[in-house]
């Protein structure tokens, strides 16, 4: 294995770990901010995987197409996050709740 392949493997493994951990976190978290954070990090894991794989391109430069996709993805993730946070504020203002579960285990007021 060349150095490059090892680098790719390390980062791909980290990406998969992050992704798996965040999927789990997303499923068990109740508070919506926590869920939004998890969603963001989940996206980051996917980006990392994409770019790590892009590094496999032959030659000195990585493949620019995944890079462009990730740049686009970061911005889209940001807009989605910002929108989600605004919606969360509205939810809180309207109902005083910060989670979507029933009232019994609703988050802090």
């Amino acid at each position: 294995m060349t150095d490059q392949e090892i680098t790719v493997l390390i980062y791909a493994a980290a990406a998969i770990l992050v992704f798996g951990a965040t999927v789990y976190g997303f499923l068990v978290a109740r508070h919506l901010i926590r869920r939004i954070v998890c969603l963001n990090m989940m996206g980051a894991g996917v980006f990392l995987l994409l770019v790590a794989v892009a590094r496999r391109a032959p030659g000195p430069d990585p493949d620019p197409v995944p890079h462009a996709m990730v740049l686009t993805g970061i911005v889209v993730a940001l807009s989605a996050t910002a929108f989600a946070l605004v919606v969360l504020r509205r939810l809180y203002d309207a109902t005083g709740r910060t989670s979507l579960t029933g009232d019994d285990d609703a988050g802090p007021r």
């Binding site: 680098t7 980062y11 901010i33 939004i36 954070v37 963001n40 980051a44 980006f47 770019v51 790590a52 892009a54 590094r55 430069d61 990585p62 890079h67 990730v70 740049l71 970061i74 911005v75 993730a77 940001l78 996050t81 910002a82 946070l85 969360l88 504020r89």
Partner: peptide
Amino acid sequence: WVRLDAPDIALAEAAIGAGITGALMLDA
């Protein structure tokens, strides 16, 4: 990102991912 030869993404991530998203979240 820098380690993976993607400086563009590194810049965007530092500014957007860590900076602005973080600010938004703290604020919310």
